[in-house]
Design a protein around this nucleic acid. Sequence first.
DNA 1: GCCTACAGTCTACACTGTAGAGAAGTTGTT
DNA 2: AACAACTTCTCTACAGTGTAGACTGTAGGC
Lengths: 243, 243
Amino acid sequence: MSPEEHPAPPATPGKKARLSRELVLSAALALVDAEGLDALTMRRLGHELGRDPMSLYRYAANRAALLDGVSELVLNELAIIPDDPNWQAQLRRIAHDLRLLALRHPNVVPLLVTRPLSTPLGLRPLGTLRPLEQILSLLIDAGFAPDDALHVYRAYYGYLYGHILNELQEFVVDPDENEALLRLGLHRLPPKDFPRLRALAPVLADYDGMAELDEGITILLSGLAARLSLPGAPAGPSDLSGA
Amino acid sequence: MSPEEHPAPPATPGKKARLSRELVLSAALALVDAEGLDALTMRRLGHELGRDPMSLYRYAANRAALLDGVSELVLNELAIIPDDPNWQAQLRRIAHDLRLLALRHPNVVPLLVTRPLSTPLGLRPLGTLRPLEQILSLLIDAGFAPDDALHVYRAYYGYLYGHILNELQEFVVDPDENEALLRLGLHRLPPKDFPRLRALAPVLADYDGMAELDEGITILLSGLAARLSLPGAPAGPSDLSGA
DNA sequence: GCCTACAGTCTACACTGTAGAGAAGTTGTT
DNA sequence: AACAACTTCTCTACAGTGTAGACTGTAGGC
C-alpha cells in the first residue's frame, strides 16, 4: 500500500554466493519476523536475497512449501529432551520454551497453528513432527502406556497452544496511554453490552502470561497424573517465577 | 488452477433482490464451508450472488472485514447462557457446543484463531467479544471475584481452542484404506526417527474428540475450583458420552 | 578444450484486491 | 407526474500476486 520502496538487499558482501535452502528459509524467517507474513512474497524475498524471484523455486516447490519450511525452521529452535526421568518437569520446561519461542516469532504463530489444519500428519515437514515423537518417547520412557502417552500429549499440547494464542492476542494497542481502557482500545465497546470486560481493563492490561501458563500446566499435569494413577510426584508449582 | 468453471449462481429465483450484509456474509460462509478459505475471493463471491464483485464493498470495507464478518457470523451460532448457576456445567456445555460448531465449520477455524492475532481487543467485531463478556458474567455471577473470573476464562478458553485445533488437525487422509498407517499417511515417516508415532497409528486413527475434551475440561475446571477454593461441586465427569 | 548438469533469469499469463467514475434504481417531495 | 437526492450496483483500470516454460550462464569432469 505505502509507496515506500524497500531500500536494498542488506548489502551482502560476497555478492553472488550460491543460494541454499537454509539461506532462503532464514531470509524468509527474518522477513516474516520483521514485517509480517504478508511481506513474504516471492518477489520481495528474491529482492532481499539479490536474486530473481524464480530462483527460489529451486529450494521450495511453491509458496506453501516455503511457509512450511519457515514453520519447520522455527520449531527446530525448540531444544528437546535430555533424558530427564521427571516427565512433569520436562513438559513444563518445554512449555515455557515454546512460549518464549512464540513470543520471539509472533508472526510465525499463525503458520504453526494453521498449516497443520491443511496438511495430514504424514505429509508434514518432519521437523514439525519431531516434538510430537519426542514427547511421546519421553512419556513412554517415564512409564506411560502408549495410549496414555498420546492422551497426555494431546491434552498438554492442546492447552499449550491455546495458551500461546490467548497470550498473543491480548496485546496492547497504545503503550503510551496510561489509562487501562485506552491502552487496550476498550473504550470503543458499548458500556451497556460489555460492562464486565470494560471493568476488567486494568487486570487485562497486566497479564503475566508465564505465571498463567505455569499454573495451567500444573493443574493439567497433576490432574492427568492422578487420573492415570501414575509415576507422578505431586507436581507443585515450579520455581521459574523469577525469570 | 483447475480450468473448471463454477457452474452458475445457484439460480436465484427472485433474480435481483437487493443485497444486504446478512446475505453477503451468509453466502461467504457457505462458500467457505463448501470450498475453503481460498475460494472466497471477491470475484467469486460476486459471481455466487449474481452481482458485480465491487458491489460487495458496500457491505464490507475490504476483504479482511469480510473475513471478520464471517467469524462473527459463525460465533453467533453459539448460544450462550441461560441463568444456570452451575458454572462448571455451563462451561462444559459451551465447550461442547463450540467444538461442534468448529466441526460444522472447520474451514472457518483458522479465521477464528488467526484474526484476533492481528486485531486488538477493542477493535474486534462485537460478536466475537460477546462470548468473552458473557462467560465473565457467568463466572462473576457464580461467585468469582472479577480477576479470578478472568483467570478461569483464560485457562478455559485457551484449552478449549487448543483442543479444537488439535482435533481438527488429526484428520484422516484416506478413509477407504483400512490399514491404520496408510489411513493417516504415516507410512511416509522414516521408521528409525518416528517409531512411537508409527506404532501409535491405530490409536491415532480412532480419536474420540468429545471424550477427550470432556475429560480435559473436568481436570481443568476442578483444578481451578480447588485452587480458588470456590463454589465448586466436585465436578465429576459429565454424562454426555453417549451422544 | 568440449560436455553435461545444474543455478539463476526472463517473459508471460491468469488471477488477486480495490480505487474512481459513472449508470441504474429507489425513495421522498412537490 | 416530474423532479431531486440518495443509495446501490457496474465498469474500467491498475498494481501486485504466484508460477509455468523457455532460456542463459556458470561449474565441474574428463
